[in-house]
Design a protein around this nucleic acid. Structure first.
Length: 568
RNA sequence: UGGGGUGUAGCCAAGCGGUAAGGCAGCGGCCUUUGGAGCCGCCAUUCGGAGGUUCGAAUCCUCCCACCCCAGCCA
Protein backbone atom coordinates (compact mmCIF):
# COMPACT_ATOMS: atom_id res chain seq x y z
CA UNK A 1 0.00 0.00 0.00
CA UNK A 2 2.55 2.55 1.08
CA UNK A 3 4.99 3.16 -1.68
CA UNK A 4 8.64 2.76 -0.89
CA UNK A 5 10.09 6.17 -0.19
CA UNK A 6 12.51 6.71 -3.01
CA UNK A 7 15.07 9.46 -3.05
CA UNK A 8 13.50 12.33 -4.93
CA UNK A 9 15.13 13.12 -8.25
CA UNK A 10 17.84 15.76 -8.24
CA UNK A 11 17.05 19.27 -9.35
CA UNK A 12 18.83 22.60 -9.42
CA UNK A 13 17.08 23.92 -6.31
CA UNK A 14 18.21 20.95 -4.27
CA UNK A 15 21.71 21.58 -5.60
CA UNK A 16 21.57 25.15 -4.34
CA UNK A 17 20.28 24.11 -0.94
CA UNK A 18 22.88 21.42 -0.57
CA UNK A 19 25.63 23.83 -1.48
CA UNK A 20 24.30 26.37 1.01
CA UNK A 21 24.20 23.77 3.75
CA UNK A 22 27.68 22.59 2.98
CA UNK A 23 28.91 26.15 3.26
CA UNK A 24 27.01 26.65 6.48
CA UNK A 25 24.87 29.45 5.10
CA UNK A 26 22.00 30.38 7.46
CA UNK A 27 23.42 27.86 9.94
CA UNK A 28 22.21 25.17 7.58
CA UNK A 29 18.55 26.13 8.04
CA UNK A 30 16.04 25.53 5.28
CA UNK A 31 12.95 27.68 5.59
CA UNK A 32 10.58 28.09 2.66
CA UNK A 33 7.13 29.54 2.19
CA UNK A 34 4.13 29.16 -0.07
CA UNK A 35 2.84 32.70 -0.76
CA UNK A 36 -0.44 32.77 -2.70
CA UNK A 37 -2.42 35.92 -3.27
CA UNK A 38 -5.98 35.21 -2.11
CA UNK A 39 -7.57 36.31 -5.36
CA UNK A 40 -8.63 32.95 -6.73
CA UNK A 41 -8.64 29.23 -6.11
CA UNK A 42 -5.52 27.14 -6.15
CA UNK A 43 -4.84 25.02 -9.23
CA UNK A 44 -2.54 22.16 -10.10
CA UNK A 45 0.21 24.64 -10.93
CA UNK A 46 0.08 25.83 -7.34
CA UNK A 47 0.24 22.20 -6.25
CA UNK A 48 3.65 22.00 -7.90
CA UNK A 49 4.82 24.98 -5.87
CA UNK A 50 3.25 23.66 -2.66
CA UNK A 51 4.86 20.25 -3.07
CA UNK A 52 8.17 21.92 -3.82
CA UNK A 53 8.17 24.31 -0.88
CA UNK A 54 6.72 22.00 1.75
CA UNK A 55 8.59 19.04 0.30
CA UNK A 56 12.00 20.72 0.45
CA UNK A 57 11.41 21.87 4.01
CA UNK A 58 10.43 18.39 5.04
CA UNK A 59 13.34 16.81 3.24
CA UNK A 60 15.92 19.02 4.92
CA UNK A 61 14.32 19.10 8.34
CA UNK A 62 13.24 22.68 7.86
CA UNK A 63 10.03 24.68 7.94
CA UNK A 64 7.54 25.97 5.42
CA UNK A 65 5.19 28.88 6.07
CA UNK A 66 1.85 29.57 4.51
CA UNK A 67 1.73 33.26 3.76
CA UNK A 68 -1.03 35.16 2.06
CA UNK A 69 0.35 37.83 -0.19
CA UNK A 70 -2.58 40.13 0.44
CA UNK A 71 -1.29 43.49 -0.71
CA UNK A 72 -3.99 44.31 -3.22
CA UNK A 73 -7.37 44.43 -1.45
CA UNK A 74 -9.27 45.25 -4.61
CA UNK A 75 -9.01 41.67 -5.85
CA UNK A 76 -8.85 39.64 -2.69
CA UNK A 77 -11.43 37.93 -0.55
CA UNK A 78 -11.72 35.68 2.51
CA UNK A 79 -13.51 33.12 0.35
CA UNK A 80 -10.18 32.60 -1.37
CA UNK A 81 -8.25 32.55 1.89
CA UNK A 82 -10.48 29.78 3.19
CA UNK A 83 -10.36 27.72 0.02
CA UNK A 84 -6.58 27.98 -0.17
CA UNK A 85 -6.14 26.71 3.37
CA UNK A 86 -8.54 23.86 2.70
CA UNK A 87 -6.71 22.89 -0.47
CA UNK A 88 -3.22 22.96 1.03
CA UNK A 89 -4.43 20.81 3.90
CA UNK A 90 -6.18 18.42 1.56
CA UNK A 91 -2.96 18.00 -0.36
CA UNK A 92 -1.52 16.77 2.90
CA UNK A 93 0.65 19.67 4.08
CA UNK A 94 0.69 21.34 7.46
CA UNK A 95 1.98 24.82 8.17
CA UNK A 96 1.36 24.25 11.90
CA UNK A 97 1.36 27.63 13.64
CA UNK A 98 3.08 29.39 10.77
CA UNK A 99 0.16 31.06 9.05
CA UNK A 100 1.07 34.57 8.00
CA UNK A 101 -0.23 37.45 5.96
CA UNK A 102 1.70 40.18 4.26
CA UNK A 103 -0.88 42.43 5.88
CA UNK A 104 0.59 41.40 9.26
CA UNK A 105 3.60 43.43 8.21
CA UNK A 106 1.94 46.61 6.98
CA UNK A 107 3.16 48.59 9.98
CA UNK A 108 6.69 47.19 9.76
CA UNK A 109 6.77 47.79 6.01
CA UNK A 110 5.73 51.37 6.63
CA UNK A 111 8.61 51.80 9.08
CA UNK A 112 11.01 50.26 6.57
CA UNK A 113 9.79 52.71 3.96
CA UNK A 114 10.47 55.60 6.30
CA UNK A 115 13.99 54.27 6.74
CA UNK A 116 14.54 54.28 2.99
CA UNK A 117 13.19 57.80 2.71
CA UNK A 118 15.52 58.93 5.46
CA UNK A 119 18.42 57.32 3.62
CA UNK A 120 17.45 59.32 0.58
CA UNK A 121 16.52 56.11 -1.23
CA UNK A 122 12.80 56.72 -1.67
CA UNK A 123 10.63 59.68 -2.56
CA UNK A 124 7.05 60.75 -2.89
CA UNK A 125 6.16 61.22 -6.54
CA UNK A 126 3.22 63.25 -7.84
CA UNK A 127 3.28 61.86 -11.35
CA UNK A 128 0.06 60.26 -12.57
CA UNK A 129 0.06 56.63 -13.67
CA UNK A 130 0.22 57.71 -17.30
CA UNK A 131 3.10 60.06 -16.62
CA UNK A 132 5.00 57.43 -14.72
CA UNK A 133 4.71 55.22 -17.76
CA UNK A 134 5.97 57.96 -20.06
CA UNK A 135 8.91 58.75 -17.82
CA UNK A 136 9.85 55.10 -17.56
CA UNK A 137 11.16 54.96 -21.11
CA UNK A 138 11.00 51.81 -23.21
CA UNK A 139 12.79 48.52 -23.48
CA UNK A 140 15.48 50.10 -25.60
CA UNK A 141 15.44 53.69 -24.39
CA UNK A 142 16.31 54.88 -20.90
CA UNK A 143 13.70 56.63 -18.78
CA UNK A 144 13.99 60.12 -17.37
CA UNK A 145 13.93 61.29 -13.82
CA UNK A 146 10.69 62.31 -12.21
CA UNK A 147 10.57 66.05 -11.47
CA UNK A 148 9.78 65.09 -7.86
CA UNK A 149 12.84 62.90 -7.49
CA UNK A 150 14.94 65.47 -5.70
CA UNK A 151 12.54 66.46 -2.97
CA UNK A 152 14.08 66.86 0.45
CA UNK A 153 13.98 64.06 2.93
CA UNK A 154 11.79 66.17 5.21
CA UNK A 155 9.28 66.81 2.47
CA UNK A 156 9.24 63.14 1.53
CA UNK A 157 8.67 62.08 5.14
CA UNK A 158 5.89 64.63 5.49
CA UNK A 159 4.22 63.65 2.24
CA UNK A 160 4.45 59.93 2.96
CA UNK A 161 2.95 60.39 6.43
CA UNK A 162 0.12 62.40 4.92
CA UNK A 163 -0.39 59.74 2.24
CA UNK A 164 -1.00 57.30 5.05
CA UNK A 165 -3.34 59.69 6.81
CA UNK A 166 -5.50 59.89 3.74
CA UNK A 167 -4.91 63.50 2.81
CA UNK A 168 -4.58 62.74 -0.90
CA UNK A 169 -6.93 61.15 -3.38
CA UNK A 170 -6.42 57.70 -4.87
CA UNK A 171 -3.74 57.56 -7.50
CA UNK A 172 -2.53 61.08 -6.89
CA UNK A 173 0.85 60.13 -5.47
CA UNK A 174 3.12 57.15 -4.99
CA UNK A 175 6.15 56.36 -2.96
CA UNK A 176 8.99 55.31 -5.24
CA UNK A 177 12.39 53.81 -4.69
CA UNK A 178 15.18 56.04 -5.96
CA UNK A 179 17.36 53.75 -8.02
CA UNK A 180 18.22 54.34 -11.67
CA UNK A 181 15.91 55.56 -14.42
CA UNK A 182 18.45 54.46 -17.03
CA UNK A 183 18.75 50.89 -15.81
CA UNK A 184 18.40 48.31 -18.59
CA UNK A 185 16.20 46.45 -16.13
CA UNK A 186 12.88 48.27 -16.07
CA UNK A 187 12.17 47.05 -12.56
CA UNK A 188 15.01 49.23 -11.32
CA UNK A 189 13.66 52.44 -12.89
CA UNK A 190 12.36 53.89 -9.61
CA UNK A 191 9.72 51.23 -8.94
CA UNK A 192 6.57 52.13 -7.06
CA UNK A 193 6.54 50.95 -3.45
CA UNK A 194 3.20 52.36 -2.33
CA UNK A 195 0.03 53.42 -4.06
CA UNK A 196 -2.94 55.26 -2.58
CA UNK A 197 -5.96 53.01 -2.78
CA UNK A 198 -9.15 53.33 -0.80
CA UNK A 199 -10.33 49.77 -0.79
CA UNK A 200 -11.48 47.80 2.18
CA UNK A 201 -9.02 45.07 2.98
CA UNK A 202 -10.34 41.65 4.00
CA UNK A 203 -8.21 41.73 7.13
CA UNK A 204 -7.23 45.31 7.91
CA UNK A 205 -10.53 46.84 6.86
CA UNK A 206 -10.19 50.57 6.26
CA UNK A 207 -7.17 51.07 8.45
CA UNK A 208 -4.93 51.72 5.47
CA UNK A 209 -5.38 53.71 2.32
CA UNK A 210 -1.87 53.10 1.06
CA UNK A 211 -0.83 49.63 0.03
CA UNK A 212 2.60 48.18 -0.60
CA UNK A 213 3.26 46.75 -4.05
CA UNK A 214 4.44 43.18 -4.53
CA UNK A 215 8.05 44.23 -4.96
CA UNK A 216 8.10 46.19 -1.77
CA UNK A 217 6.18 43.67 0.31
CA UNK A 218 7.47 40.32 -0.81
CA UNK A 219 11.15 40.31 -0.10
CA UNK A 220 10.70 42.13 3.19
CA UNK A 221 8.06 39.62 4.25
CA UNK A 222 10.46 36.81 3.40
CA UNK A 223 13.14 38.52 5.43
CA UNK A 224 10.91 39.10 8.44
CA UNK A 225 9.97 35.41 8.48
CA UNK A 226 13.57 34.32 8.10
CA UNK A 227 12.89 32.58 4.82
CA UNK A 228 16.16 31.14 3.54
CA UNK A 229 15.05 30.09 0.08
CA UNK A 230 12.29 32.12 -1.53
CA UNK A 231 11.11 30.05 -4.45
CA UNK A 232 9.04 31.70 -7.15
CA UNK A 233 8.35 31.40 -10.85
CA UNK A 234 10.46 32.48 -13.81
CA UNK A 235 8.71 35.76 -14.57
CA UNK A 236 10.21 37.19 -11.38
CA UNK A 237 13.76 36.63 -12.51
CA UNK A 238 14.29 40.23 -13.44
CA UNK A 239 12.74 41.35 -10.17
CA UNK A 240 15.56 39.66 -8.29
CA UNK A 241 17.95 42.63 -8.48
CA UNK A 242 15.21 44.74 -6.93
CA UNK A 243 14.45 42.09 -4.33
CA UNK A 244 18.12 42.12 -3.38
CA UNK A 245 18.39 45.91 -3.50
CA UNK A 246 15.62 46.50 -0.95
CA UNK A 247 17.05 43.93 1.44
CA UNK A 248 20.54 45.35 1.11
CA UNK A 249 19.45 48.96 1.58
CA UNK A 250 17.56 47.97 4.70
CA UNK A 251 20.38 45.78 5.96
CA UNK A 252 17.97 43.06 7.04
CA UNK A 253 18.14 39.26 6.80
CA UNK A 254 18.86 38.27 3.24
CA UNK A 255 16.53 35.65 1.80
CA UNK A 256 17.57 34.18 -1.50
CA UNK A 257 15.13 34.24 -4.38
CA UNK A 258 15.21 31.20 -6.69
CA UNK A 259 13.08 30.91 -9.81
CA UNK A 260 11.66 27.80 -11.49
CA UNK A 261 9.38 27.20 -14.46
CA UNK A 262 5.70 27.13 -13.68
CA UNK A 263 3.59 24.16 -14.68
CA UNK A 264 1.67 24.13 -17.92
CA UNK A 265 -0.61 21.21 -18.67
CA UNK A 266 -1.90 20.24 -22.09
CA UNK A 267 -5.59 20.75 -22.83
CA UNK A 268 -6.08 23.19 -20.00
CA UNK A 269 -5.17 26.66 -18.78
CA UNK A 270 -3.51 27.75 -15.59
CA UNK A 271 -4.10 31.48 -15.64
CA UNK A 272 -6.16 32.59 -12.65
CA UNK A 273 -7.54 35.45 -14.68
CA UNK A 274 -8.80 33.11 -17.39
CA UNK A 275 -10.14 30.58 -14.90
CA UNK A 276 -12.05 33.41 -13.22
CA UNK A 277 -13.47 34.34 -16.60
CA UNK A 278 -14.75 30.79 -17.12
CA UNK A 279 -16.41 30.92 -13.72
CA UNK A 280 -17.92 34.37 -14.12
CA UNK A 281 -19.25 33.73 -17.61
CA UNK A 282 -20.76 30.43 -16.59
CA UNK A 283 -18.77 28.18 -18.86
CA UNK A 284 -18.24 25.97 -15.84
CA UNK A 285 -20.20 25.52 -12.64
CA UNK A 286 -17.66 27.32 -10.46
CA UNK A 287 -14.06 27.15 -9.32
CA UNK A 288 -14.69 23.60 -8.12
CA UNK A 289 -16.27 22.33 -11.31
CA UNK A 290 -14.89 18.82 -11.94
CA UNK A 291 -13.49 19.95 -15.28
CA UNK A 292 -11.41 22.71 -13.76
CA UNK A 293 -7.67 22.27 -13.14
CA UNK A 294 -8.21 23.71 -9.67
CA UNK A 295 -7.42 21.62 -6.62
CA UNK A 296 -11.06 21.79 -5.61
CA UNK A 297 -12.13 20.76 -9.11
CA UNK A 298 -9.75 17.83 -9.20
CA UNK A 299 -10.89 16.81 -5.73
CA UNK A 300 -14.53 16.84 -6.72
CA UNK A 301 -13.66 15.02 -9.90
CA UNK A 302 -12.26 12.20 -7.78
CA UNK A 303 -8.53 12.79 -7.90
CA UNK A 304 -6.61 11.67 -4.84
CA UNK A 305 -4.15 14.02 -3.19
CA UNK A 306 -1.59 11.21 -3.35
CA UNK A 307 -1.84 11.04 -7.12
CA UNK A 308 -1.40 14.80 -7.43
CA UNK A 309 1.66 14.73 -5.20
CA UNK A 310 3.08 11.84 -7.15
CA UNK A 311 2.51 13.80 -10.34
CA UNK A 312 4.29 16.83 -8.94
CA UNK A 313 7.22 14.65 -8.04
CA UNK A 314 7.40 13.05 -11.46
CA UNK A 315 7.33 16.21 -13.54
CA UNK A 316 10.50 17.50 -11.93
CA UNK A 317 11.60 21.05 -11.31
CA UNK A 318 13.65 22.99 -13.83
CA UNK A 319 13.97 26.38 -15.48
CA UNK A 320 12.89 25.21 -18.89
CA UNK A 321 9.38 26.28 -19.87
CA UNK A 322 7.38 23.22 -20.64
CA UNK A 323 3.94 21.80 -21.07
CA UNK A 324 3.37 18.50 -19.37
CA UNK A 325 1.10 16.05 -21.14
CA UNK A 326 -2.10 15.68 -19.12
CA UNK A 327 -2.01 11.91 -19.70
CA UNK A 328 0.77 11.77 -17.12
CA UNK A 329 -1.61 13.18 -14.51
CA UNK A 330 -4.20 10.60 -15.53
CA UNK A 331 -1.59 7.88 -15.31
CA UNK A 332 -0.74 8.89 -11.74
CA UNK A 333 -4.41 8.75 -10.81
CA UNK A 334 -4.94 5.33 -12.36
CA UNK A 335 -1.86 3.91 -10.75
CA UNK A 336 -3.06 5.05 -7.33
CA UNK A 337 -6.69 4.02 -7.72
CA UNK A 338 -5.90 0.69 -9.32
CA UNK A 339 -4.55 -0.40 -5.96
CA UNK A 340 -7.16 1.24 -3.78
CA UNK A 341 -10.51 1.47 -5.53
CA UNK A 342 -13.14 -1.17 -5.01
CA UNK A 343 -14.53 -2.66 -8.20
CA UNK A 344 -18.23 -2.39 -8.94
CA UNK A 345 -20.41 -3.15 -11.90
CA UNK A 346 -22.44 -0.33 -13.42
CA UNK A 347 -23.99 -0.36 -16.86
CA UNK A 348 -23.78 3.09 -18.35
CA UNK A 349 -25.95 2.57 -21.43
CA UNK A 350 -28.19 -0.40 -20.64
CA UNK A 351 -29.32 -3.01 -23.14
CA UNK A 352 -31.78 -5.67 -21.95
CA UNK A 353 -30.54 -9.21 -22.12
CA UNK A 354 -32.92 -12.13 -21.45
CA UNK A 355 -31.55 -15.58 -20.68
CA UNK A 356 -34.22 -17.80 -22.16
CA UNK A 357 -33.14 -21.00 -20.43
CA UNK A 358 -32.80 -19.44 -16.99
CA UNK A 359 -35.93 -20.10 -14.87
CA UNK A 360 -38.15 -17.07 -14.62
CA UNK A 361 -38.56 -17.05 -10.86
CA UNK A 362 -35.00 -18.02 -10.06
CA UNK A 363 -32.30 -15.79 -8.70
CA UNK A 364 -29.00 -16.41 -7.00
CA UNK A 365 -26.09 -14.60 -5.45
CA UNK A 366 -22.63 -14.78 -6.88
CA UNK A 367 -19.33 -13.96 -5.24
CA UNK A 368 -17.29 -11.09 -6.59
CA UNK A 369 -13.78 -10.02 -5.67
CA UNK A 370 -13.68 -6.41 -4.56
CA UNK A 371 -10.19 -5.72 -5.83
CA UNK A 372 -8.01 -8.27 -7.61
CA UNK A 373 -4.95 -6.16 -6.70
CA UNK A 374 -5.71 -6.41 -3.00
CA UNK A 375 -7.30 -9.59 -1.61
CA UNK A 376 -7.65 -7.96 1.79
CA UNK A 377 -10.48 -5.89 0.37
CA UNK A 378 -12.60 -9.03 0.41
CA UNK A 379 -15.58 -10.09 -1.66
CA UNK A 380 -19.21 -9.16 -2.03
CA UNK A 381 -22.39 -10.78 -3.33
CA UNK A 382 -24.00 -9.89 -6.62
CA UNK A 383 -27.55 -10.97 -7.51
CA UNK A 384 -28.14 -12.75 -10.80
CA UNK A 385 -31.43 -13.42 -12.56
CA UNK A 386 -33.02 -14.09 -15.91
CA UNK A 387 -33.18 -10.52 -17.12
CA UNK A 388 -29.99 -8.48 -17.10
CA UNK A 389 -28.59 -5.29 -18.51
CA UNK A 390 -25.34 -5.21 -20.40
CA UNK A 391 -23.55 -2.31 -22.03
CA UNK A 392 -25.01 -1.34 -25.40
CA UNK A 393 -21.60 -1.03 -26.92
CA UNK A 394 -20.71 -4.58 -25.90
CA UNK A 395 -22.95 -5.97 -28.64
CA UNK A 396 -22.45 -5.78 -32.39
CA UNK A 397 -24.75 -7.38 -34.87
CA UNK A 398 -21.99 -7.35 -37.49
CA UNK A 399 -18.85 -7.66 -35.42
CA UNK A 400 -15.53 -6.52 -36.84
CA UNK A 401 -12.45 -8.71 -36.78
CA UNK A 402 -11.00 -9.42 -33.34
CA UNK A 403 -14.32 -8.67 -31.67
CA UNK A 404 -14.43 -10.67 -28.43
CA UNK A 405 -17.65 -9.26 -27.13
CA UNK A 406 -21.23 -10.30 -27.76
CA UNK A 407 -22.53 -10.92 -31.26
CA UNK A 408 -25.12 -13.27 -32.74
CA UNK A 409 -24.01 -16.82 -32.02
CA UNK A 410 -21.02 -15.71 -29.98
CA UNK A 411 -20.33 -16.85 -26.44
CA UNK A 412 -19.03 -14.49 -23.78
CA UNK A 413 -18.46 -14.61 -20.07
CA UNK A 414 -20.52 -12.46 -17.75
CA UNK A 415 -18.06 -11.41 -15.09
CA UNK A 416 -18.31 -13.52 -11.94
CA UNK A 417 -21.37 -15.30 -13.40
CA UNK A 418 -21.98 -17.52 -16.41
CA UNK A 419 -21.20 -17.98 -20.07
CA UNK A 420 -23.97 -16.84 -22.36
CA UNK A 421 -24.46 -17.22 -26.08
CA UNK A 422 -26.51 -14.79 -28.09
CA UNK A 423 -29.40 -16.46 -29.85
CA UNK A 424 -31.69 -13.68 -30.92
CA UNK A 425 -31.76 -9.96 -31.49
CA UNK A 426 -34.91 -7.89 -31.02
CA UNK A 427 -35.12 -4.58 -32.80
CA UNK A 428 -37.41 -1.62 -32.75
CA UNK A 429 -39.50 -2.03 -35.90
CA UNK A 430 -39.44 1.63 -36.74
CA UNK A 431 -35.86 2.61 -35.98
CA UNK A 432 -34.07 -0.68 -36.38
CA UNK A 433 -32.36 -0.08 -33.09
CA UNK A 434 -31.42 -3.16 -31.09
CA UNK A 435 -33.59 -3.09 -27.99
CA UNK A 436 -33.23 -6.58 -26.51
CA UNK A 437 -30.99 -9.59 -26.73
CA UNK A 438 -31.86 -13.19 -26.08
CA UNK A 439 -29.28 -15.65 -24.88
CA UNK A 440 -28.88 -19.08 -23.45
CA UNK A 441 -26.55 -19.72 -20.59
CA UNK A 442 -24.42 -22.69 -19.66
CA UNK A 443 -25.38 -23.77 -16.12
CA UNK A 444 -22.02 -25.54 -15.85
CA UNK A 445 -20.16 -22.24 -16.15
CA UNK A 446 -21.22 -20.79 -12.81
CA UNK A 447 -18.58 -18.45 -11.49
CA UNK A 448 -17.18 -17.94 -14.95
CA UNK A 449 -15.37 -21.21 -15.63
CA UNK A 450 -16.22 -24.55 -17.22
CA UNK A 451 -14.56 -27.89 -16.66
CA UNK A 452 -13.71 -28.28 -20.32
CA UNK A 453 -11.78 -25.05 -20.05
CA UNK A 454 -13.05 -23.88 -23.39
CA UNK A 455 -11.79 -20.51 -24.37
CA UNK A 456 -14.04 -17.51 -23.99
CA UNK A 457 -12.24 -14.32 -24.89
CA UNK A 458 -14.78 -11.71 -23.94
CA UNK A 459 -15.83 -10.85 -20.40
CA UNK A 460 -18.64 -8.37 -19.90
CA UNK A 461 -19.91 -6.46 -16.89
CA UNK A 462 -23.65 -6.60 -16.23
CA UNK A 463 -26.36 -6.01 -13.63
CA UNK A 464 -29.55 -7.86 -12.81
CA UNK A 465 -32.47 -5.76 -14.02
CA UNK A 466 -34.69 -6.50 -11.04
CA UNK A 467 -31.95 -5.76 -8.52
CA UNK A 468 -30.07 -2.89 -10.05
CA UNK A 469 -31.04 0.71 -9.48
CA UNK A 470 -30.74 3.83 -11.59
CA UNK A 471 -27.94 6.32 -11.03
CA UNK A 472 -26.69 9.40 -12.82
CA UNK A 473 -23.19 9.35 -14.22
CA UNK A 474 -21.33 12.41 -15.43
CA UNK A 475 -18.69 11.80 -18.03
CA UNK A 476 -16.04 14.46 -18.37
CA UNK A 477 -13.71 15.23 -21.18
CA UNK A 478 -11.01 17.88 -21.50
CA UNK A 479 -12.33 21.41 -21.08
CA UNK A 480 -10.53 22.49 -24.24
CA UNK A 481 -10.03 20.86 -27.59
CA UNK A 482 -6.74 22.65 -28.21
CA UNK A 483 -3.58 21.17 -26.80
CA UNK A 484 -2.42 24.63 -25.77
CA UNK A 485 -5.59 26.66 -25.25
CA UNK A 486 -3.58 29.60 -23.97
CA UNK A 487 -1.75 29.99 -27.27
CA UNK A 488 -4.37 31.37 -29.57
CA UNK A 489 -4.28 32.79 -33.03
CA UNK A 490 -4.31 36.50 -33.47
CA UNK A 491 -7.84 37.78 -32.93
CA UNK A 492 -9.34 34.73 -31.25
CA UNK A 493 -9.44 34.13 -27.54
CA UNK A 494 -8.85 31.06 -25.44
CA UNK A 495 -12.54 30.34 -25.12
CA UNK A 496 -12.79 29.59 -28.82
CA UNK A 497 -11.34 26.15 -28.14
CA UNK A 498 -13.70 25.35 -25.28
CA UNK A 499 -14.84 21.76 -25.72
CA UNK A 500 -18.63 21.68 -26.23
CA UNK A 501 -18.63 18.03 -25.16
CA UNK A 502 -16.67 18.36 -21.96
CA UNK A 503 -19.65 17.15 -19.96
CA UNK A 504 -21.93 14.27 -20.89
CA UNK A 505 -24.64 13.40 -18.39
CA UNK A 506 -26.02 9.87 -18.46
CA UNK A 507 -29.14 9.68 -16.37
CA UNK A 508 -30.29 6.11 -17.01
CA UNK A 509 -27.36 4.08 -15.81
CA UNK A 510 -27.96 0.91 -13.81
CA UNK A 511 -25.82 0.10 -10.80
CA UNK A 512 -25.35 -3.09 -8.82
CA UNK A 513 -27.12 -3.07 -5.45
CA UNK A 514 -24.01 -2.84 -3.27
CA UNK A 515 -23.56 0.68 -4.51
CA UNK A 516 -26.72 1.84 -2.73
CA UNK A 517 -24.81 2.75 0.39
CA UNK A 518 -22.10 4.67 -1.46
CA UNK A 519 -20.99 7.71 0.51
CA UNK A 520 -20.18 11.04 -1.14
CA UNK A 521 -16.54 11.23 -2.13
CA UNK A 522 -16.01 7.46 -2.27
CA UNK A 523 -14.04 6.29 -5.28
CA UNK A 524 -14.71 3.12 -7.24
CA UNK A 525 -13.60 1.42 -10.35
CA UNK A 526 -16.62 0.61 -12.48
CA UNK A 527 -15.45 -2.54 -14.15
CA UNK A 528 -14.19 -2.03 -17.69
CA UNK A 529 -15.27 1.63 -17.59
CA UNK A 530 -13.01 3.69 -15.42
CA UNK A 531 -12.69 5.35 -12.05
CA UNK A 532 -15.70 7.12 -10.61
CA UNK A 533 -16.54 8.87 -7.37
CA UNK A 534 -19.77 9.82 -5.68
CA UNK A 535 -20.28 13.52 -6.28
CA UNK A 536 -19.94 15.56 -3.12
CA UNK A 537 -22.29 18.33 -4.18
CA UNK A 538 -25.24 16.85 -6.04
CA UNK A 539 -25.47 13.23 -4.95
CA UNK A 540 -28.24 12.28 -2.47
CA UNK A 541 -28.99 8.80 -1.08
CA UNK A 542 -31.98 8.17 -3.32
CA UNK A 543 -30.46 9.72 -6.42
CA UNK A 544 -26.78 8.97 -6.57
CA UNK A 545 -24.56 10.95 -8.89
CA UNK A 546 -21.15 9.71 -9.97
CA UNK A 547 -18.34 11.62 -11.61
CA UNK A 548 -16.03 9.84 -13.96
CA UNK A 549 -12.54 10.70 -12.80
CA UNK A 550 -10.72 8.90 -15.60
CA UNK A 551 -11.36 6.13 -18.06
CA UNK A 552 -9.46 2.89 -18.05
CA UNK A 553 -6.95 2.44 -20.83
CA UNK A 554 -8.87 1.24 -23.85
CA UNK A 555 -6.85 -1.20 -25.91
CA UNK A 556 -9.85 -2.22 -27.98
CA UNK A 557 -10.35 1.35 -29.13
CA UNK A 558 -6.78 1.28 -30.43
CA UNK A 559 -7.25 -2.03 -32.17
CA UNK A 560 -10.43 -0.88 -33.83
CA UNK A 561 -8.82 2.34 -34.93
CA UNK A 562 -5.92 0.41 -36.42
CA UNK A 563 -8.35 -1.93 -38.18
CA UNK A 564 -10.20 0.97 -39.72
CA UNK A 565 -6.95 2.54 -40.81
CA UNK A 566 -5.81 -0.62 -42.53
CA UNK A 567 -9.11 -0.92 -44.38
CA UNK A 568 -8.65 2.45 -45.97
C1' U B 1 17.24 47.01 -31.93
C1' G B 2 17.99 47.07 -24.14
C1' G B 3 17.97 43.56 -20.12
C1' G B 4 16.96 38.74 -18.05
C1' G B 5 16.32 33.48 -19.11
C1' U B 6 15.95 28.64 -21.76
C1' G B 7 17.31 24.89 -25.80
C1' U B 8 18.88 16.71 -24.36
C1' A B 9 13.38 11.63 -27.88
C1' G B 10 6.38 12.86 -29.31
C1' C B 11 5.88 15.06 -23.75
C1' C B 12 8.59 15.77 -19.08
C1' A B 13 13.63 15.16 -17.23
C1' A B 14 18.73 13.38 -15.25
C1' G B 15 23.48 14.51 -16.68
C1' C B 16 28.28 19.04 -13.88
C1' G B 17 35.32 16.48 -19.04
C1' G B 18 35.47 9.60 -19.34
C1' U B 19 31.69 7.94 -24.09
C1' A B 20 23.28 9.71 -23.35
C1' A B 21 19.47 7.72 -16.36
C1' G B 22 14.33 7.40 -15.44
C1' G B 23 9.00 8.32 -16.22
C1' C B 24 4.78 9.15 -19.59
C1' A B 25 3.28 8.17 -24.57
C1' G B 26 4.16 4.69 -28.62
C1' C B 27 5.37 -0.21 -30.67
C1' G B 28 6.00 -5.72 -30.23
C1' G B 29 5.26 -10.13 -27.12
C1' C B 30 3.67 -12.95 -22.61
C1' C B 31 -0.17 -13.36 -19.15
C1' U B 32 -5.20 -12.36 -17.75
C1' U B 33 -12.63 -14.16 -15.33
C1' U B 34 -11.70 -6.09 -16.47
C1' G B 35 -9.39 -5.74 -24.38
C1' G B 36 -7.97 -3.19 -16.92
C1' A B 37 -3.70 -4.50 -14.05
C1' G B 38 0.98 -7.06 -14.30
C1' C B 39 5.50 -8.95 -16.77
C1' C B 40 9.37 -8.93 -20.82
C1' G B 41 11.48 -6.42 -24.90
C1' C B 42 12.13 -2.18 -28.43
C1' C B 43 12.23 3.15 -28.79
C1' A B 44 18.58 9.66 -29.09
C1' U B 45 25.54 6.74 -32.76
C1' U B 46 23.69 11.94 -30.35
C1' C B 47 22.32 16.66 -26.87
C1' G B 48 19.47 24.03 -31.20
C1' G B 49 23.62 25.04 -35.23
C1' A B 50 28.77 25.95 -36.74
C1' G B 51 33.66 26.24 -35.34
C1' G B 52 37.52 25.57 -31.47
C1' U B 53 40.24 23.41 -26.94
C1' U B 54 41.18 18.20 -25.40
C1' C B 55 43.61 11.54 -25.85
C1' G B 56 38.33 12.30 -24.88
C1' A B 57 32.91 17.42 -25.11
C1' A B 58 25.74 17.34 -23.98
C1' U B 59 29.36 19.14 -20.32
C1' C B 60 34.83 24.09 -21.41
C1' C B 61 35.57 28.49 -25.17
C1' U B 62 33.83 31.54 -29.54
C1' C B 63 30.18 32.92 -32.91
C1' C B 64 25.31 32.15 -34.66
C1' C B 65 20.01 30.57 -34.42
C1' A B 66 15.29 29.77 -32.02
C1' C B 67 11.88 30.43 -28.16
C1' C B 68 10.10 32.71 -23.37
C1' C B 69 9.77 37.00 -19.81
C1' C B 70 10.01 42.55 -18.73
C1' A B 71 7.64 49.15 -20.56
C1' G B 72 0.79 47.65 -13.90
C1' C B 73 0.11 52.61 -9.02
C1' C B 74 -1.20 43.42 -10.59
C1' A B 75 1.13 39.35 -8.27
Amino acid sequence: MTKATVTPPPNFIRDIIEKDRKEGKNEGRVHTRFPPEPNGYLHIGHAKSICLNFGLAEEYGGLCNLRFDDTNPSREDVEYVDSIMEDVRWLGFDWKDRLFYASDYFEQLYEYALQLIKKGKAYACDLSADEVREYRGTLTEPGKNSPYRERSIEENVDLFERMRKGEFPDGSRTLRAKIDMASPNLNMRDPVMYRILRASHHRTGDKWCIYATYDWAHGQSDSIEGITHSICTLEFEDHRPLYDWFIEQLGIFHSQQIEFARLNLSYTIMSKRKLLELVEEGHVGGWGDPRMPTISGLRRRGYTSESIRDFCERIGVAKRESTVDIVLLEHCLREDLNERAQRMMVVLRPLRLVIDNYPEDQEEELDAVNNPEDPSMGTRKIPFSRVLYIEKEDFREDPPKKWFRLAPGQEVRLKHAYYVTCTDVIKDERTGEVVELHCTYDPESRGGWTKDERRVRGTLHWVSSSHSFPVEVRLYDYLFTAENPGETEEGSDFKSSLNPNSLDILSACQAEPSLKEAEPGTRYQFLRQGYFCVDTADSVPDALVFNRTATLRDTWAKIEKALKMSEK
